[in-house]
Amino acid sequence: MSELEIIRSTHKKQKPEDDQLVFGTQFTDHMFIMDYTPERGWHYPRITPYEPIALEPASTVFHYGQMVFEGLKAYRTKEDKILLFRPEKNFQRLNRSSERLGIPAIDEEKALLYLEELLRIDREWVPSLDGTALYIRPFIIATDPNLTPKPSNTYKFMIILSPVGSYYEEGIHPVGIYVEEQFTRAVKGGTGMAKTAGNYSAAYKAQEKAVNKGQSQVLWLDAVEKKYIEEVGSMNVFFKIDGEVITPELSGSILEGVTRMTTIELLKKWDIPVTERKISIDEIAKAYQEGKLEEAFGTGTAAVISPIGELLWNDQKMVINDRITGPIASKLYEKLTGIQTGVEEDQYNWTIEVI
């Protein structure tokens, strides 16, 4: 990687204590930046001190939201190794998101090498306490100073790092979910399958409603019929009904989660029936009334596995498994976090050691 320039920080920050970490508010000493122009393509990769960046006020990203991002984690093992979990899947998805937003693709293999070098430099920032990790945020922003609503010609690809604790205050304990029927997150043919800023800011009003009703997150229904379940605000979602695990099929408006994919693969390896299909909120309510709704949980990089203890729909609370984490959610959490942190043997070659 002779093309990679490294400028080390001369002012090291004070690292927070592992037991004081919150999600996404503190950042490491360094960051990665690379530029794109039509003439040179992606060029000038560099690791620099973490600092503010200068952009034109007319930059496309500010006015038309042309940007994509990813989220993954680095984990410290008991043997003091640093592991990444399926990072190639995140860079593949970043390129899928970029294609939908009209952003030039990056070289996925090189991007992973750049990330590994950044992690080697900021290795000491990876926390070691159980339940903690170093959150990794790759993102691409459009930088043309142009108010014409069209794709940018220039971009910046950046990676920043943040030591984190649990995403939810509840941790692995079951959370409450509010079923949203008024607002829409995404529609087939839109940008729901891409990881882009507008998908998240469009959810804030519904999230505010959920919090006001005492719930942690929003469960989105499809935009057309307001009937079929799509995903939770920061997670894909699974339901265990009468022995079968069901998750909404990828329809073009649902994010293809790496943890979702891994969960499906594990369930199949364990011979637990798992199906990807359309599932309606009415079917969930009927299963609940018949005593067949046995478990519900979300999957995502931030929370890994997040059990769902109750659903609030039409002012009716569906309490799931007495608000106790179910056996499948527990097994998945232990297996995934075990592999991610090196406690369990990685039989599937999902982890990469940063040497």
Rank of each mutant, 00 (worst) to 15 (best):
G298I: 10
P57N: 02
Q182C: 08
M261F: 03
G198C: 12
Y167E: 00
T60P: 00
R185Y: 08
A206N: 02
I355P: 15
R40L: 15
E88C: 04
M1I: 08
K13S: 14
A105F: 14
K15D: 03
N199T: 05
W220A: 07
M318N: 11
A287S: 06
L336H: 03
D222E: 06
E99H: 08
Y168V: 09
Y200V: 04
A287G: 04
Q14E: 15
L147V: 06
L219Q: 00
E283V: 10
I328C: 09
K205T: 06
K268R: 08
L119D: 01
F69E: 00
E169L: 14
K331L: 12
G65Y: 05
I254L: 12
T10N: 13
G298Y: 11
V232P: 01
Y200T: 01
L118W: 10
I103D: 06
P16H: 05
P248Y: 02
E225L: 11
A202D: 02
N349D: 14
T154E: 15
R185E: 01
F157V: 00
K278A: 11
E265L: 10
Q20H: 10
S98N: 07
L55H: 05
P307W: 03
E310M: 14
P87T: 06
G300P: 05
H63N: 04
F297S: 06
T259L: 13
Y333D: 05
V232F: 04
L83S: 09
R100P: 00
G338E: 04
P248V: 01
K15Y: 12
G24K: 08
G233Q: 03
D122K: 10
I254N: 06
F69M: 06
S330P: 02
S9V: 13
E117F: 14
I339R: 05
I246F: 05
N236T: 01
W350A: 09
E276M: 13
R123Y: 15
A287Y: 03
I47R: 12
T275H: 09
P151S: 04
L219R: 02
G71A: 05
H30G: 12
Q66G: 05
